[in-house]
């Protein structure tokens, strides 16, 4: 990108004379609409306006447009934008945001009558691009696929892992996941079994009944008796481990690992 347009004009055609100098500095920098406090003298019909006196230069500020809220404008997206929508979708966003982040980078076009007409047909053509059920679906998908869920189960009483266990574990991390959106792998996990302590498995979460994402989970045992508790492991997700059953290996390898710190 060109650093400065004047540079271009100077080098390309030498049409603009060099107009560099000291910057025009003032204490207050605002965009404003002013009004004369004292009205000007009336002049004759069709005649020259009368000379302005000093008092005609006394102005009152009517409105300062920089402090006003920027109006929203309509744009049509030409590509999927995370948190905003799919290609071909018409959205209403803050004008400044739209200009800086959508229009100039070429992710959207103005919703002018021609563009609306033009993109009516193109929505179908653009449909083969990856689309999502909602604007935030992609973000949720990405977040869930990168997390390691800690599933804490009882050490004293027998249990079989159920979706509501996973739901509770999600809630502990701050994710509200409905029970019907959680699917467990076919081979059931039972316990308490200290062989599977700290080992990995996966669950399948369905977002908006469309997108499916595999979430990496780690099993931990916990007892109400303080003496029986397993010592606390700091940053358990950084310790390497293996799957509970060897059948889970293929799926677990496809899930991207959680990266907390970059290696040097």
């Amino acid at each position: 990108m060109w650093k400065n347009a004047t540079f271009l004009l100077k080098t390309a055609s030498k049409e603009v004379p060099s107009l560099c100098g000291t910057p025009f500095l003032q204490q207050v920098r605002t965009t404003y609409i002013l009004k004369r406090r004292f009205p000007t003298q009336l002049h004759k019909k069709g005649g020259q306006p009368k000379k302005l006196r000093s008092r005609h230069y006394v102005y009152d500020l009517v409105k300062d447009t920089t402090t006003e809220k920027q109006p929203n404008i309509d744009v049509i997206l030409t590509d999927f934008v995370e948190g905003y929508g799919n290609a071909g979708e018409k959205i209403s966003v803050n004008s400044q945001f739209a200009y800086n982040n959508l229009l100039v980078p070429g992710l959207a076009v103005y919703a002018s009558p021609e563009n609306i007409e033009k993109y009516k047909d193109q929505i179908e053509a653009l449909a083969d691009k990856q689309t999502y059920s909602s604007a935030n679906a992609a973000l949720t998908l990405k977040t869930l696929s990168r997390m390691t869920l800690s599933v804490v189960m009882n050490k004293d009483h027998p249990w079989t892992l159920q979706p509501w266990h996973i739901k509770t574990s999600f809630r502990k991390c701050g994710y509200v996941v409905p029970e019907d959106a959680i699917a467990l792998p076919e081979k059931s996990i039972t316990g308490p079994n200290m062989d599977s302590e700290g080992k990995e498995f996966y669950v399948i979460v369905t977002i908006n009944n469309t997108e499916k994402v595999n979430v990496r989970c780690r099993l931990h045992h916990w007892s109400t008796e303080i003496v029986d508790r397993i010592p606390y492991v700091d940053k358990f997700w950084e310790n390497p481990t293996e799957p509970i059953y060897s059948e889970f290996t293929d799926v677990l390898q496809t899930i991207p690992p959680k990266i907390t710190k970059l290696k040097d």
Binding site: M1, W2, N4, A5, L8, T65, Q70, S95, Q96
Partner: peptide, 12 residues
């Protein structure tokens, strides 16, 4: 072409 220029809010 893209130009980096000094503008006002009104221009945008």
């Amino acid at each position: 072409k893209f130009f980096s220029v000094i503008v006002t809010d009104r221009t945008i």
